[in-house]
């Protein structure tokens, strides 16, 4: 294990060496510690590489995501965990300079295949962002937006029902049912984030990606969201990127540790936190860097 750590330290110094002159083949692949596969995956990612222009942001990542689990991705800033998350519903497409290679399958279908439609993909793999981003519309319209564009409701009654169910699932219904016509931007930060979750649920996706959903929230709002995640995993797979190790420990069943674009270690959350096998994981968890 020590050897490996040294190799990493030598071979993958921060960014400097991962310049464009080095072809992908020359780079030494770091083998991920722990089991990356699961028995019944909804998403499987193999050999995923992401380059932002000259920067090699994700290097040969393999990982599976199971049905009805919460997978936490942790790691120091700039380690590529958010980048990887954005690969899973092709949000990187909106960045001109991003190039994704490798194979990511959603229930056996390659999502980067030419035949895969990105709109359908995103309807199935929803995403919640770091900063709450409700549209400047009413609360109702925010939740109804997805069903409307995708044509999920046949009539107004169905739409009302979807909105109500989604807000209930997001634990927001009690707080806002009397002011659905008011702008979503007028809610508090925690409420806004739950509105965004409700908005995502309204499309009934299979997977929900959460990119540090609580980093802009206070502890009470955070607790509510964490509670919500626990309930949501009954119906959805959730992948959450978080800076807070405690949060990862509280909400997730499995944890993946990223370091400088490499997936270092994956495993049951309890095992990772109590008995990390890789030196880098241990250093991070014990607070030696990060």
């Amino acid at each position: 294990m020590l050897d490996q750590a040294d190799t990493i330290a030598m071979d993958v110094p921060p960014e400097a060496d991962s310049g464009p002159t080095r072809a992908a083949g020359e780079e030494k692949k770091i083998k991920t510690t722990g089991r990356v596969t699961v028995n019944k995956p909804i998403i499987t990612a193999r050999d995923v590489n992401v380059r932002y222009g000259d920067k090699h942001a994700i290097k040969d990542v393999d990982i599976d995501i199971a049905y009805n689990e919460v997978l936490a991705m942790i790691g120091p800033s700039g380690c590529g965990k958010s980048t990887f998350l954005r690969c899973l519903n092709r949000m990187n497409d909106t960045v001109d300079i991003a190039r994704v290679t490798g194979r990511i399958e959603l229930e056996g279908h390659d999502i980067y295949d030419r035949k895969t439609d990105v709109v359908t993909l995103r309807a199935r793999v929803g995403m919640v962002f770091q900063k709450p981003n409700p549209f400047p519309k009413s609360i109702y319209e925010n939740v109804a937006y997805g069903p409307r564009i995708h044509g999920l409701a046949r009539n107004q009654v169905e739409l009302d029902e979807i909105v109500q169910t989604s807000l209930r699932k997001a634990g927001l219904w009690e707080e806002v049912n009397d002011r659905l016509e008011q702008p979503g931007t007028g809610l508090s930060g925690g409420q806004q984030q739950r509105l965004c979750i409700a908005r995502t649920i309204a499309v009934s996706p299979d997977v929900i990606l959460m990119d540090e959903p609580c980093s802009a929230l206070d502890p009470i709002a955070t607790a509510k969201i964490e509670e919500l995640m626990d309930e949501l995993k009954e119906n959805y797979s959730i992948v959450i990127v978080t800076h807070s190790m405690q949060q990862a420990a509280r909400v997730s069943q499995r944890t993946a540790y990223f370091h400088l674009g490499d997936l270092i270690e994956v495993g049951e959350t309890e095992r990772i936190f109590t008995n990390p096998r890789h030196k880098l994981t241990e250093d991070y968890l014990t607070g030696r860097f990060g």
């Binding site: 519903n89 949000m91 909106t94 990105v118 709109v119 359908t120 993909l121 995103r122 309807a123 929803g126 995403m127 919640v128 962002f129 900063k131 981003n133 409700p134 549209f135 400047p136 519309k137 937006y145 997805g146 564009i149 995708h150 965004c196 908005r199 995502t200 499309v203």
Partner: peptide
């Protein structure tokens, strides 16, 4: 950009995002 991201993440096409989110905003 967060508005665009929010809309794309729900599976909206570009023109839907423009007409229903960006222009109203």
């Amino acid at each position: 950009q967060a508005m665009r991201d929010g809309s794309y993440a729900l599976g909206a096409t570009q023109s839907e995002t423009v007409r229903r989110v960006i222009l109203p905003a």
